[in-house]
């Protein structure tokens, strides 16, 4: 029997300088949880977030950054020829925050 995720995970993130922190995730699917950091719309870091509630961004390139927490949503095991999921993917589960370096 394949698993089907129900409900919507939610978490709140905060930022102090470069230090990001997160709340517990409610309705937690237990799958991969990552911080996704973007700059000028480009992903510059995807960092595991499950084991720690905090993450300090160390990139020194000046600019406006945006952070969000994402969790892997399983929608079926279909893959492309490279072995990557086609329908299943990381989805946003938190508010988005901006910070400046």
């Amino acid at each position: 029997m394949d698993q089907r995720f129900e409900g919507t995970p939610k978490a709140e993130i905060r930022v102090e300088g470069r230090r990001l922190s997160r709340s517990k995730v409610t309705n937690d699917w237990g799958s991969q949880l990552v911080w996704e950091i973007t700059r000028n719309g480009q992903v510059v870091a995807t960092v595991p977030a499950r084991a720690n509630n905090e993450y300090t961004h160390e990139h020194n390139t000046p600019g406006q950054y945006e952070a969000v927490l994402k969790m892997f949503k399983y929608e079926g095991y279909a893959k492309d020829t490279a072995g990557n999921f086609t329908a299943s993917k990381l989805v946003e589960v938190s508010n988005k925050l901006s910070f400046t370096v």
């Binding site: 799958s31 399983y74 072995g83």
Partner: peptide, 11 residues
């Protein structure tokens, strides 16, 4: 594949 292990099974 490794994608299943990394995103779903191991976590």
């Amino acid at each position: 594949t490794y994608a299943d292990y990394e995103n779903l099974l191991c976590p």
